[in-house]
Amino acid sequence: MNFTLKIWRQENAKAKGRFETYKVENISSDCSFLEMLDILNESLISNKIAHPVCFDNDCREGICGMCGLYINGRPHGNDDGVTTCQLHMRKFKDGETIWIEPWRAKAFPVIRDLVVDRTAYDKIIQAGGYVSVSTGGVPDANSILIPKDKADKAMDAAECIGCGACVAACKNASAMLFVSAKVSHLALLPQGKVEAANRVQKMVEKMDELGFGNCTNTYACEAECPKLIKRSNIARLNREWICARVGKEK
């Protein structure tokens, strides 16, 4: 297969970016999207055309959350429930022009080319996305009983890989799906309930502070989430927020 690629190139965080056009030829349909970019980079180096395109990637099996490209108007490209590394060229038409852009959000500034800085997510987690337990001195694992359906629901939310596709997809660059997944995961479990009220407030405050937009319930996040995290988590986050605010003592 042959493709024309329009790729965002930007030297560094401060430089002005632009789209460059490259062609790749003889790509196997079994090739993954990132492997296609590897092939492009090899040819950019070998033919001394340009510095290879920088893009984040690591595990290449859809779990680390490192990769993330905005491909033809969709985060992680034209397939549902996959990360960019799991997207395969068989999903494209031969001869197609493919636009590749970095995640765009104030809270995710571009570092270089297609690489963005997602440390904002870590900051949200640091604000309270954990159970404040230190090592040792914990009860036996089976002393905490958790109904299977609750554990399953918590797991559904905990599957979030923090890739940032929800922010990238959202027309408001809102991080609500990410935050709600973490809040839900912990709020559904007895271990997390203890700090639930404090957690939700701290995390939402941090999220607002970092310049993410507001959720307008458009659900592009849900449509693009590679781990199929559901909007019901956002509703749960809202509930947790209301309960926390109503029950808040000054």
């Binding site: 159970v131 914990v138 694992a141 905490i144 109904p147 918590a154 271990q191």
Partner: peptide, 11 residues
């Protein structure tokens, strides 16, 4: 330790 941290092990 992991259960105390909220790791959602299968039940």
């Amino acid at each position: 330790q992991c259960v105390a941290q909220g790791v959602p092990f299968a039940r």
